[in-house]
């Protein structure tokens, strides 16, 4: 199976970033920037390598769009064991919109050929979750988002689990070729050692320019972009909500509520904090479970 992994190298906001004076872009705030791929992209990479391992054959190609300075993302992919790394070099236009990025990638993946495309559900910087969806649409293939588990027993179809709210999972099946956007909850990735990154430095990274994909940046700007990024602003600190207890309560209850930030109110809704010896607690739990019909009451013969 031919698998493509799309990764985006981003500057880690945790390491210190700030909007540039004109607000048009984000720059490191004095310290060295930390360049990495986000957790979702990392999960997509992990899944791709795992699928190849489980099938015992096939190839994984990592693709990124960026400038020639973006070496870290693909190096991580190579260190994790992808067979081939392709960088599509665009001119300094770090915030081209999702649509134009998807159009660039479309050309590239058509040239590479694929059975399955994996990418992160969200990028680690802008988090728009758009490129994957637009790309699938442009390619006319099925897309499943927020994937946390992939099974590829059958080589013509793929069955995946999607992450829903509150821990729910949705099982979806679709024909190949398909595009899956992977969520970081897919699992803890393998650690990539510095040594593996050093080994990866000796592995080739292919650089494709836009011309090799029959694209020009002018054309992309004029026809490709559907949106334009206007400005960045640092987030305003959110005012903290202060809990105000019901004035009709007794002072004792009010203090209790203030101290717990209103959490003890829950108690009133019929839940009880059980206390006592382990045996007593176990008895109470069993009694409760029986009352609710969760476990059957066994009558003594």
């Amino acid at each position: 199976m031919k698998i493509l992994v799309l990764v985006k190298e981003v500057m880690d906001a945790n390491a210190g970033l700030a909007p540039s004076p004109d607000g048009s872009r984000v720059l490191p705030d004095g310290t060295d920037p930390v360049c990495r791929i986000g957790p979702d992209d990392r999960a997509a990479l992990e899944e791709a390598v795992k699928i190849r391992a489980s099938q015992g054959s096939g190839s994984v190609t990592a693709v990124t769009v960026g400038s020639t300075e973006n070496v870290n993302g693909l190096r991580i992919c190579l260190a994790r064991g992808v067979d081939r790394a392709v960088r599509i070099v665009t001119e300094d236009n770090p915030y081209q919109d999702a649509f134009s990025t998807a159009r660039i990638i479309k050309k590239a993946v058509e040239k590479l050929g694929f059975n399955l495309i994996l990418c992160g559900n969200k990028s680690y910087d802008l988090g728009r979750s758009q490129v994957g969806a637009i790309l699938a649409e442009l390619l006319g293939i099925p897309q499943v988002s927020r994937v946390v588990k992939i099974e590829t027993g059958n080589r013509t179809r793929v069955q995946v689990q999607r992450r829903m709210e509150k821990g729910d999972r949705e099982i979806v099946e679709c024909p190949l070729p398909a595009l899956l956007t992977v969520d970081h909850l897919a699992g803890e990735p393998q650690y990539i050692s510095v040594n593996a990154l050093l080994v990866a430095e000796n592995q080739p990274v292919e650089s494709w320019d836009l011309a090799s994909l029959d694209l020009t940046s002018d054309k992309l700007d004029q026809e490709g972009s559907q949106t334009r990024l206007m400005a960045f602003e640092p987030p305003r600190p959110r005012p903290k909500k202060i809990f105000v207890p019901d004035s009709s309560l007794s002072p004792d209850q009010k203090i209790n509520l203030l101290l717990t930030g209103g959490l003890t109110q829950e108690k009133k809704k019929g839940s009880d904090l059980l206390q006592g010896s382990p045996d007593h607690l176990a008895d109470e739990i069993i009694k409760f479970l029986k009352e609710k019909g969760i476990i059957p009451s066994v009558s003594k013969a």
């Binding site: 050692s193 040594n195 050093l198 080994v199 430095e201 000796n202």
Partner: peptide
Amino acid sequence: RLGEEKIL
């Protein structure tokens, strides 16, 4: 021999 073999 860092960077020579993948597994140390």
